[in-house]
Each structure stands twice: as C-alpha cells, then as structure tokens.
Amino acid sequence: MIAKEMYSFREALAKQGVIFCYSGYMTEEVLAGIGKTLRSKLDMEKTDRKVARGIFSLFVEQVQNVIRYSAEKEPDTDDPDYDGKEMRYGLLTVGQNDDRHFVACANLVPKWDVDRLRENLTKIQNLDKEELKALYKQILKGDVPVGSKGAGVGFVDIARRATHGFDFDFIEIDAEYSYFALKAYI
C-alpha cells in the first residue's frame, strides 16, 4: 500500500510535468543542495544554456522569497528582536509542460499582505521589457522598501527572466492566512 500511495503521488506530479518537487521547510542549505542538483540535471539534459541559466535564476529568487517571507515558520514568533535561526515552510516545483519550463513556489502569507502583493505583481505583470528594466534599476538605486529583507527587486527579476511570463494567485486559508502561489515560465 505504501508503494501504491507514493506512486500515485509521483504520478500526480508527473502529470503536471513536475521534475523536481520539494515541500517542507526551506533553508539556505536546501536552496544550495537543490540548486546544485538542478544545474546538473539541466546540464545532463543538454538544456539550452540560456534557458538553463534562466531556470536557475527563477529558482533562486523564488526559493529565497519563501525563505524570507513565508508566514509559516519555526519558531513561530513575531518578535522583531528574534535573530536566531528560523525555517519557513513552502512548496517548490520545477518542471516542463509542452515547450515551456516552469518554476513554481507557494507559501502562506498573512492576509493583510495579500492586497499589496497582488497590486505589486499585477503592476509588474503589465510592464513591458523596457519598463521592467527601468523599474529594476530604480529599485536597485533606491532605498530598500519597508518589510523587505533582500533588495526588494526579486519579483521584477523574476518577471525579467520569465520569457513566457508568470501567473500568480491566492486562496483564503483561514481568518489569518492566505496561500500564495507564483509560477514563472521560460
């Protein structure tokens, strides 16, 4: 029964074209390990180098988003003075559908942050190549936005790398949280 259960799980992923899947706590160690394996796999498959670089870049930005922003974390503290190790929970899939490769990530976000994220991502989605470039530079030169732990430029970078664009949406989980998913295509 165990094999059957696991195999049907595997089949469900395969149906969606998923080649890599990780669900669990995302850490920098996980990023480094999966990243290395992903690169080797792309290399073995003789994936076009430009495409392979793009996939790797989408992978890094998306996983770092989960590591920094997922609302599901251990230890579960909102204490701003807490500076110890923490782990945040998320789901990553990397795969291929038809001729397009994809990198998708999903994680919980606080409900109060959904409008801001949606607005931000919709804006980015509607920019053309030149506008994305301008926004990218503007953010790099400016101050880091409030609440950002990186450069605050991650989504713009994803949009620039995703040659076939990206989709995202949210579902409500409970009074406090929504589930956020973003899938970028190359």
Binding site: F56, Q64, Y136, L140, G150, A151, V153, G154
Partner: peptide, 12 residues
C-alpha cells in the same frame, strides 16, 4: 557567472 537580485543591489 550568476548573481541574484540582492547581489545586483550591491553591484549597483
């Protein structure tokens, strides 16, 4: 060879 978006800020 490759740099992420946080590194881009440093490069700038």
């Amino acid at each position: 060879i490759y740099f992420n978006s946080s590194s881009a800020k440093i490069l700038m």
